[in-house]
């Protein structure tokens, strides 16, 4: 039962209030019809599935309902950062370095 921080509500809550939405920053092509087969399969299915520092989407389903992003180490399950949807992806290497300290 992870402890998740919602950057909209400004609170930590147990994981069961949230749903994980998979890898973050995978944008749907703006003009899907112009997307190549490869673009589309990448968008639909290909995931980095990173072992280590990973960026993923969470939604505060049983709270404010908002989507936000989290940086998590998938080996330890420790969260390194939470940020609102639309904000740029943080420097993962930097975060990893800091967490390793």
């Amino acid at each position: 039962m992870l402890l998740v921080y919602c950057p909209y509500c400004g609170v930590e809550r147990p994981e069961t209030e949230f749903s994980c939405g998979g890898q973050a920053h995978i944008a749907r092509p703006v003009d899907p019809s112009a997307a190549t087969e490869e673009d589309w399969v990448n968008f639909l299915y290909m995931r980095s599935n990173t072992k280590g520092v990973y960026v993923e989407r969470w939604r505060h389903t049983h709270g404010c309902g908002r989507f936000f992003n989290a940086v998590r180490n998938t080996v330890t399950d420790d969260f390194l950062s939470f940020y609102k949807a639309g904000e740029p992806m943080p420097d993962l290497e930097e975060l990893a370095k800091e967490a390793g300290k």
Partner: peptide, 13 residues
Amino acid sequence: DQFISYSQTGGIH
């Protein structure tokens, strides 16, 4: 669990 992980552990729920 609902998230990817390489921890080889899961939540009690």
